Simulated scan of single mutants.
Amino acid sequence: MNLLVVGATGTLGRQVVRRALDEGHQVRCLVRSPRKATFLKEWGAELVQGNLCEPDTLPPALEGITAIIDAATSRPTGSLTIKQVDWDGKVALIQAAAAAGVERFVFFSILNCEKFPKVPLMEIKRCTELFLAESGLNYTILQPAGFMQGLIMQYAVPILEGQAVWITGEAAPTAYMDTQDIAKFAVRALEVPETTNKTFPVVGTRAWRADEIISLCERLSGKDARIARLPINFLRAMRQITRFFQWGWNIADRLAFTEVLATGKPMTASMDEVYPVFGLDPNDTTTLEAYLQEYFSRITKKLREIDYEKSKAKKKKRKTPMKKP
């Protein structure tokens, strides 16, 4: 299948590209900067320069394409807003795909987006779901809750470096999933007719609270966490402040996500009926324990190698004979 991956350089998008290539698909990636996407070309993907926010660049990228997997989203620190990328850009892409006769469109939304109309990203995801469903395209909508990869910088790295781990006491438990596993569902959707014009949750094996993740990281790293708590009301106030500045609009919209956390309701869903539809084995899904265990094992091994090289360099320096005057 000739596949176009949008958002291919992102945390999830790159795993979609890797999985699709491994399964024998011809993969083309829509990228804003080919220079920053050379690793995708080295893997075997074709790069085409384009931008969701520049609709004229989309038709050339869609020539000969039979399916799209859309993993693009705005960056909190980027210059483009959520509305520009996650709404205007997606509308342009869906319209271009319909005009090009694309046969399948896989879209990544967010779990429970319909329940939070006042949270910009959630509401835009919901509206995009509706727009896609009414576009005439054969679609599959996948709804992750959170990526395990995001927990590394949020919890693992600060604990390893003795820095503060910032948490909110009311944060909702979340069923995080490894992006490699999410990519399996996305690529598999292209081959399973039963996934056509349907929406599926794609979540991890269980929902984890922040304190549970911290305890797990402490056990695996052998270090104690320095926990700093941020009240939800403080984050709400920060959102109001950043909204007054254009440079802060993206940050303000992301801070609105605190309203999802404030509910305290687990971000999870049953996957009992999802795995059989996709023909995937739930036992192959990475657990959070296994994911963090592998991460800390790699870090520990790397630190040992560094210590060994330092020790070897010191011994070599001591053995070097002094030069005669």
Rank of each mutant, 00 (worst) to 15 (best):
N2P: 15
L4R: 05
G10Y: 02
T11K: 04
G13D: 10
V16F: 03
V17E: 03
V17Y: 00
H25P: 06
Q26K: 06
R28P: 03
C29R: 06
S33Q: 07
T38H: 05
T38C: 11
L40G: 00
K41E: 15
W43S: 10
W43H: 06
N51K: 05
L52E: 02
C53L: 11
C53S: 12
D56N: 11
L58K: 03
L58W: 03
E63T: 13
A67P: 07
A67W: 07
I68M: 01
D70P: 04
T73W: 01
S74V: 06
S74M: 06
S74Y: 00
R75Y: 06
G78F: 01
S79A: 11
L80V: 08
Q84M: 08
V85Y: 00
G89I: 12
A92N: 07
A92Y: 03
A98S: 15
A100D: 02
G101Y: 13
E103H: 07
R104P: 11
F105P: 04
F105I: 11
V106D: 01
L111D: 09
N112S: 13
C113M: 03
E114C: 05
P117H: 00
E123W: 07
K125L: 14
F131E: 11
Y139A: 09
L142V: 07
Q149W: 00
L151E: 02
L160Q: 06
L160K: 04
Q163N: 13
A164N: 08
A164G: 11
V165H: 01
W166A: 13
W166Y: 13
I167Q: 06
A171Y: 06
Y176L: 12
Y176N: 14
I182M: 09
K184T: 03
A189P: 06
A189E: 00
P193M: 03
N197F: 02
K198T: 11
K198P: 12
P201S: 04
T205K: 15
R206H: 13
R209Y: 05
S215L: 15
C217E: 07
G222M: 12
D224H: 11
D224E: 15
M238G: 10
I241F: 05
R243G: 10
Q246A: 10
W247I: 08
N250R: 03
A252I: 05
R254L: 14
A256Q: 09
T263H: 08
A269M: 07
E273K: 10
V277C: 00
F278L: 05
G279N: 07
L280R: 02
P282M: 08
D284T: 12
T286E: 07
T287G: 11
T287Y: 00
A290R: 03
A290H: 08
F296S: 12
K301D: 12
D307Q: 11
S311E: 14
K312E: 07
K312L: 15
A313L: 14
K315G: 13
K315P: 05
K316D: 10
P321M: 04
M322W: 06
M322L: 14
K324C: 11
